[in-house]
Every structure is written in structure tokens, then in C-alpha cells.
Write a protein that binds this DNA or RNA. Structure first.
Lengths: 276, 276
DNA sequence: AGCAAAATAGAATAAATATTCCAAATTGGC
DNA sequence: GCCAATTTGGAATATTTATTCTATTTTGCT
């Protein structure tokens, strides 16, 4: 085979699909060693992002240099470039997103329209990421627990308050007995939480003391606590029976709540439906 | 914090769960920089396997050495060992958003995950149409008017209340003087609205009387009123100086606020930026 | 079988990446 | 407001990892 075919050299595959079709195009005119590379790579596409040349070479049972020649035949400059494609394709857009937003300095932000475009993009990505990250089993458990409860207590302050109030609104519309704790009358937790009730606690870093306290209190009394939070290691996780995490992109101190609101709405509507 | 606690040094976390609980155990006794590492790592667990120290350090906004110290506190010998753990457990999530969404829908009509898929889709559509439907000129005018105001009055009840409270939160964080009218003390409009102030009114069909009344009142006194509503023919349009419409896609009887929240955030951040 | 063209292995080198270390800055206790 | 202890940043270094190069082997052709 002609290794220096100028056609192949010109440009590297720009997407995984591109990569696949290019691989399919050459695979059966490759000599033995390179064929081994192709086979092993094709069979282990999902490990390219996290492997070294040496790892893959051992797997394919070829010397490292063969693997690199193989990458070059596909149009990459070397293994690193191919790996970059696979690393970047995984949850596309996320890697440099936080950085991009961070670069958008508040003072230097362009027109409101440009800002809007950024936030729309952030919201879109958050929703996509929500789709792939939600744990069906946990969501199901959360719905079941809330559906079985007498009264649902909702607590979420500061940044989480809009979500909490939205939940309260939807529950009310569905005639589900719910109580929104807004932290104004701070003493009422202990009297309001009754056996048979359940709690939805919403908080993001920096976690609000009052929210944690109420959730803690409820857990101590054996009530189910559903957590809507930003990560598994959240302090809420310690005393929650179901932890739902929402991957949301921050902008400075601000957080677009698109994904959180959508998840909250799902929870509320599913609970309402389950009660009928 | 004692960095050389012998307990932590002894053995590296053996699993991701182990890692998470160890992280949760130390996270709130870490000093500033290390705390940043912890936050960023926790929020980007899924990228550890495919990132370099430098990448993550940039994301966390710390020097690389801080990140490595952080890994060591968790019990690893360094970053590489931590990465090894995540590479082993790595299962690529791939850009299979579409597939995943389809799977969710298949969860069976009525199941929480099927619902979630529908809401995510509705949210995405709303955001996309927001991008194309916003009138730059109107948005610019709204920002200018609000930026010039002394105090910004925010009114939005029922379904719109989460958006209003979100605006109030963001303004507060940006030290913009704002007042959230929650309809509890209904008499105060007339005394609160002062010359030089401006109003953001948010309402969707069926339009809330109180919101319209406050907006009307403000317009009568010559204050600028920015409307966030669902269509140009909204009753708010009559007495608003800038009408921003949000094309929110309904799913059944329910409306997600994804696009509305994003537009509100843009407004708030742009106003905050313009004030500096 | 003999020759030219292509392919290969592995050692040598280059590049990238991780880690250490210590002077400087910060924090907390008094 | 000072001192001791802790934390931090970044330059220097060590290590790992990728890539190139070339002598050697294999292949395909006559």
C-alpha cells in the first residue's frame, strides 16, 4: 500500500463518523501489522480517549510505532491528534465551556444579545447533559417516595428558591398537598414535619444552612428526603434517600436554572400523576 | 488544616464511591485553593479520565501544584494515581444525547423518565426559538432603561413568581438595588414606586391582575416598564416601554420556564454589567 | 531465485506531562 | 499587631509518553 497517498495526508478526520468512514475505506487494503492496529482500534474505540500508545499497542500486539503509522494513514499527524478527537467528542462542548464563560468578563461583556446567545447555549448544554446523566432508578424512587407522602415539604433558599417556588406552584395546581418553607418563620420546621410527610430539599454550593438543617431534621425523624443538588458529594447526600444531581453551568455567581427547573417540573408532574 | 494526617496518607481510595465519600469527608475543612480544586473536581468527575493536570488546573483556576496537593490529601500518590482510578472506571457517555433521549421516552408513557425526556425536549425547543425570536433593539432598550433606574421593581406572581424571585436574587448578588413585589402586602405599590425607578413585570396568560395593576400604575407615573410575557398582544404591552416575548413550548398543561429564566438572567447580568 | 518496493521493529529522540521543593504570602491565635 | 503555623505559586526537575529514523525483514513481481 502506498503510505504517502497525498489524499490521506491532507486533513484529519473532523468527527468520529468521519473517522469511522475513513477507517472503513482503508481497512481491507492494509498490510498485516496495520490491519491489526485497525482491528484493535475499531473494537476498542471507547478506550482511545483514556489509553496511551503503549497500552493500545500491547492490546493490538504491535510495536508502538506501528500504531502511530496507522494514525497517520488515517490522516492524523500522530496518535495524540487522534486521541484529541476522541477526548473532545465525549460530552461535546463541555470542556471549554466553563472557560469560555469565565472569559466573558462582566465588565467587558459584549452586547446583551451576545450574552443571551451564551446563556442559551449554556442552557441547551445543561439540558443535554441532564438527559444523559439522570439515574432512572433514583428518579423513580424519588417519585415513589413523594407520591406516597401526606404533605410534601419544599425547601430551597437563595439561588434555589425560584425552583422551590416553582415546585410549590405546580403542586398546588395539581392539588398535591405541599408546603413551601421560605425561611421567614424559622421555628416552624419541628411542628410542620409530621410522620408520613416527605421533603424535597434543593441547594447548591455554597449550601444553605437552613436547607441542610431542615433536611437533617426530617431525616432524623425517618422521613424520606429527596435532594436536588449539584453533585453527589453534596452535604445533602448524607441524609437523603434519593439524590438527584443537576449538571448546570455557572456564570460567575449566577446559575441558569434551566436544567434544574426541568427536573423539578418532571418530579412534580410525575408525582401528581402517580397520585391519581 | 493538617495536611499530613496519617489516616489520609495510608491508602488511596479504591473505588469511585470511596473517592466520593473521602471527598465529602474533607471538603469543608479545606482552605481556599484546595477547596476550589475539590469543587471543580467534584463538578467535573466525568472529565478526570480524559484531562491533564494542566487542563483541570485551568478549570479550577488554581496552579497545577495545588491540584496535585489536593490529590495527595485524598490519599493518592499524585494526580496520575487518581486518574488511573477514573480511567479504569471510564465508560464513555458519548454524544448519544439523541439516543439517550429516545431511550428515556421508551421508558413507557407515564414513567418519570419518559416525562423527563419530553420536558427536556420542550425546554430545548424553547431555547432554540428564543435565540431566533428576540428583538435585539428591544432587548437593548430594556437593558438601558433598567440600567438607568434607581431601584428596579420586580413583579411576577403565580407561574411567573419563580422568575421574579430569580431576578431578585441575581440583582442582589450584583448589588443592584431591586425590590421584589410578592403580592403579600398589596398596598405598598403606590408608596414604593418613586420617580427614577423602573419596573420589570412578568406575566403569562391567564394574566395576573396584581401584576398588570402594578405595571399600569408605574406607567401612569412615567416610569419605564419592561415586560416579560408570552405574546405581543399581552395586556402588558399597552403600558410597557419594552416588551420581550418568550416563546415557551408547552407540554400538555405544563410549561417549563427554561427560556424565560434564561432571558431573565441575561437581562439581569447585562444590567449589572452596564451599571459599572 | 533475485530484485525492487513496501513494511516493520526497535532504539534514539523529542515533546508533553506530572511532581517536587522552597521562598513568599496568608492566616489564625494571642 | 506580632509570631508561628499553614498555605500557596511557580520555577526546576523527573517521569512518562509520543514520534522519528533507519537498518532489517518481508512481500510481490518476473
Amino acid at each position: 500500500m502506498e503510505l504517502t497517498d497525498p489524499m490521506d495526508q491532507l486533513v484529519a478526520p473532523a468527527s468520529i463518523d468521519d473517522f469511522r468512514s475513513r477507517l472503513a475505506g482503508v481497512i481491507d487494503q492494509l498490510p498485516r501489522r496495520l490491519r491489526q492496529c485497525a482491528d484493535h482500534i475499531a473494537a476498542n474505540e471507547d478506550r482511545i480517549a483514556v489509553s496511551t500508545v503503549a497500552d493500545l499497542a500491547v492490546g493490538a500486539d504491535v510495536p508502538p510505532s506501528a500504531l502511530i503509522r496507522f494514525c497517520q494513514i488515517l490522516g492524523f499527524s500522530g496518535f495524540s491528534e487522534m486521541q484529541r478527537l476522541f477526548r473532545g467528542a465525549y460530552v461535546p462542548g463541555w470542556p471549554d465551556y466553563a472557560t469560555r464563560l469565565a472569559d466573558l468578563k462582566l465588565g467587558g461583556a459584549g452586547s446583551p444579545t451576545a450574552l443571551l446567545a451564551e446563556f442559551i447555549e449554556a442552557g441547551r448544554l445543561s439540558l443535554e447533559s441532564l438527559a444523559t446523566s439522570v439515574d432512572d432508578a433514583v428518579l423513580g424512587r424519588a417519585v415513589a417516595e413523594l407520591a406516597a407522602a401526606d404533605t410534601i415539604h419544599i425547601v430551597g433558599l437563595r439561588r434555589a428558591f425560584p425552583v422551590a417556588s416553582y415546585l410549590a406552584y405546580v403542586f398546588e395546581n395539581m392539588s398535591v398537598s405541599a408546603m413551601l418553607h421560605d425561611g421567614i418563620g424559622k421555628l416552624d420546621h419541628r411542628f410542620a414535619l409530621r410522620p408520613g410527610d416527605a421533603v424535597i430539599a434543593i441547594t447548591f454550593a455554597p449550601y444553605s444552612e437552613e436547607t441542610l438543617a431542615l433536611a437533617h431534621d426530617a431525616a432524623d425523624r425517618g422521613l424520606p428526603v429527596v435532594a436536588l443538588t449539584d453533585r453527589q458529594a453534596s452535604p445533602l447526600a448524607k441524609f437523603s434517600s434519593a439524590v438527584l444531581t443537576v449538571p448546570e453551568v455557572d456564570f460567575g455567581a449566577f446559575r441558569a436554572l434551566s436544567a434544574t427547573i426541568v427536573l423539578a417540573m418532571t418530579l412534580a408532574v410525575a408525582v401528581g400523576a402517580a397520585r391519581e
